[in-house]
Design a protein around this nucleic acid. Sequence first.
DNA 1: ATTAGCACTCCCGACGTGTGAGTGCTAACC
DNA 2: GGTTAGCACTCACACGTCGGGAGTGCTAAT
Lengths: 352, 352
Amino acid sequence: MADAMGQRKQAVLRAVTDDYISTAEPVGSRTIARKYGLGVSPATIRNEMADLEEEGYLEQPHASAGRIPSDKGYRFYVDSLMLEKPISKSEEVRIRKEYQRRRDSIISLIRATARVLGEMSQYASVVIGPTVKGAEIRHIQLVPLSSDTVLVVVVTNSGLVEHRVLTIEHAMSLSDLDRISWVLNNKLRGSTLSDMRGRLLKEIQAEVSAYTSFLENMFELLIGAMRTSDTEKVHVEGVMQLLAQPEFREIEKARPVLEFLESDELVLRELSASARASRGTEVTIGSEHALEELRNCSIVSAPYGPGGQMVGAVAVIGPTRMDYAMATALVGYMAEQLSELLTRLDWYKSAE
Amino acid sequence: MADAMGQRKQAVLRAVTDDYISTAEPVGSRTIARKYGLGVSPATIRNEMADLEEEGYLEQPHASAGRIPSDKGYRFYVDSLMLEKPISKSEEVRIRKEYQRRRDSIISLIRATARVLGEMSQYASVVIGPTVKGAEIRHIQLVPLSSDTVLVVVVTNSGLVEHRVLTIEHAMSLSDLDRISWVLNNKLRGSTLSDMRGRLLKEIQAEVSAYTSFLENMFELLIGAMRTSDTEKVHVEGVMQLLAQPEFREIEKARPVLEFLESDELVLRELSASARASRGTEVTIGSEHALEELRNCSIVSAPYGPGGQMVGAVAVIGPTRMDYAMATALVGYMAEQLSELLTRLDWYKSAE
DNA sequence: ATTAGCACTCCCGACGTGTGAGTGCTAACC
DNA sequence: GGTTAGCACTCACACGTCGGGAGTGCTAAT
């Protein structure tokens, strides 16, 4: 923090981290000297390592073991030491192929993203589906279900489809519903759901005055729905791979993470920050997490969305001993590709 | 199988199974004699147990341990020995409350079902969402997304909403799409998706002859979509609880089940039989499963659907040492409640 | 500043052993 | 003949001991 780290010390920290990431075993001075050509003896490495430990970059599981990086060490590694590891041509092809096949709905895309990310990273992956909150309304349709229920279907500009069942007091005929649908569409097309309550509500009520209370209920429902629907959009894959990692072999260690991943609410809260901020790929390491449950994990996340407007996030969750170079490259690429696809879906100029 | 089992032998088998289910420890003759008032000495119990073992109902983990039920033993227990354990009033209330809050869409219902089932059973739960296959079409809507894509939204009688993005060759105006939507609705309302290809396709093409190829593509897409969409409807909850069970404490034991639960395809294949057959609650025990991965598990499943027509299934997955009485009661009740809710949504007589 | 040498620490697996739970068998009992 | 008491036998498991090995920190020499 205070003084810049010497070149060799950085090399040692990088070597320790690289080695620990790939072997999961504490690494000793001898190993470093042998496998990484620093041209100095183990004793010298030992001195450097002792310094690094004192400064908080390394730690020792027990007195006679090798060193492993601390969270601070990983942080420095990610920020300054890590060598870029661009994704391979074959991976790229695999991803494109997968996306080619899943163009038929946004949900397919999201699910495919989660799956591919999980398989390729060998960690757990999370994808937060696009939020409806700020989205533009493209179409609203009322469909009668039973004598006292109506289904409200909303389509947004990015191809999202939300629907809710609305209970009504008085039976309404098909033509009534069609007429209301028609008015709604004319008034609402192009505005966002959040716009709905104010001015527009009044205008619409004026036009179909017979159904004031129906409309009020509907808006209430829709606005409420948009708030709660988010938790239904968390997609998790690859939990198994996470359990295959040596740090999670005893279930007691894995429990906190699994509990986190099982709770859509928690996942959403944790990642929504990253989804909104357009900071690009972001790494959060162990104790940097606000959540106690994640102190043994790292998360690599990136927001995505059409044309720079971020609507969701993709992420990989693994042990702090994660292959950060691979994960950042992969997450970044997936977010980029997904954004591009969404952009292509969304450039219809509300003509006519 | 051949001869009816003596009363006392049955009592012993029940005692062993009950005890093992609640303690997860092999149970010895002494325990039985003490905890379950059979009025005979341990030695007598030992003789009975030796017989039961010979007949294949019990087995011994190792020579000096107590007995545990074999799969055959569990089967007999489930079929003839198990005492009914109806769900408690408070559980009932909890379930009703939960359902009260989730009436706003079918997906909410399904998810709530999975969650409640998981929490209450303390095992993993699976819910297969309703299939669109045989459902009646209530509404079709075409919504333009970009200049070369159209979103097709289909609403079915049970309130299911499916949507797919369709790529088109020539740009189509909003009014064109509206007109086609209108024709489609008139023709298709009330028929099922499977009906679509034959007669109806021709009729519709005659009416809007300008868009022959568009319609063909759309039908193709929809029919394909309905086939593949199923795998998107598997909801799993409570994997954590499964891992908390003593038999899955070492991850190696849990891996097969977890792999099964992670693969929507496998889950669907395994449960779709139970979903279609209207046999009611069904129990499959360990080696009775066709899948090798499930040899350490039991599944309690029941189909659900509106008015006797089954469209999906709910299930609980646990170790073979599962509390079958609780699981069958719970699964049965949930399926019943869910069916009732769906029935209520679906009695609109296509008036007008 | 770097390195060789060395004593020291600590984890880990192997081995032996005792204990306790539970069995099967045999012989007595009703 | 079914039931029971008694007893020897068998394992799994927990516990303590004991080297071996890996890796360190320190000191003194280069």
